[in-house]
Amino acid sequence: MPELTYLEAITDGLREEMRHDESVFCLGQDIGNFGGAFKVTEGLAAEFGRDRVWDTPLAESAIVGAAVGAAVEGMRPIAEMQFSDFIACGFDQLVNVAAKMHYRQGLAVPMVMRLPSGGGFSGGPFHSQNPEAWFLQAPGLKVVAPSTPEDAKGLMASAVRDPNPVLYMEHKHLYRRLRGEVADGRYETPLSQVRVAREGSELTVIAYGAMVHTALEATEDLDGAGIEVVDLRTLCPLDTEGILASVRKTSKVVVLHEATRSCGIGAEVCALIAEEAFEDLDGPVVRVTAPDVPIPFSPPLERAVLPQVDQVRDACRELLGY
């Protein structure tokens, strides 16, 4: 099996879907000949033409809205925001038009919204956000967040095939840092199904995206304790059974994410555990997240805000000793 970076795996996924189905096309700013701000679409315009890899004007509402219209008319658009932060400029089309379309009219909207997200590289307050939780208050949208090259490709295939609008959170910090084996050809990673990144019996860390790797590193050798790491993979709809199965097994849970704390994905996971697995717990559910502040620019400030390996290690130690 070839080894690809996380970024190459996304590109491979896009290429496979476009080869497989000619109704699949990409739209976004600078994605054509330039290959995108991060080069995720590099080579696609050469293979599929500028029509199917459309360099749009700087117009987020039009990008999302055009994707909605093309989707209901039988195309399978994959739209890119250059940074997930900019989805705020196209928010209305997503939450009011795309999300509610099927409930109101029985009309499916099979589109993928690629959202390069996350910090760790001094991107500052407008190029580092993790806005995934915004969309959980707009029923009708699905949200995925792959953490490995294998899942990056497989979740892209599933997102494209799904008849709903799927927000694909791709973590920028993983783009070129992470390599892994990725199968040739098309395959799908099922939506709403967690992945156990490491088995363990004493404590569960629940994470997604880049924080899965922070969790693995923090708990690799934690005084010999058996720490399970659960990768959510899909943030909406959550795999509630997959989450609860691990909680029932270990009875202690740390929920970790890079996004800000209040009403984040972690809050939802904690509430789920409190409602459904209270009797199985052997300690309080703990959250490790960014605090409720914008992501600052300067490296020491950014490090102070984004969850670090030591923080996760400390939280796990404390909970293990509870």
């Binding site: 219209g69 093309a70 209901v72 009011n96 009219q105």
Partner: peptide
């Protein structure tokens, strides 16, 4: 394709239909 209250949200959507 039915309208929403926010106007003119269907103008970008109609562009997408035309794009197809």
């Amino acid at each position: 394709v039915g309208m929403v209250s926010m106007l003119p949200d269907m103008a970008p959507v109609a562009c997408g239909l035309a794009l197809a």
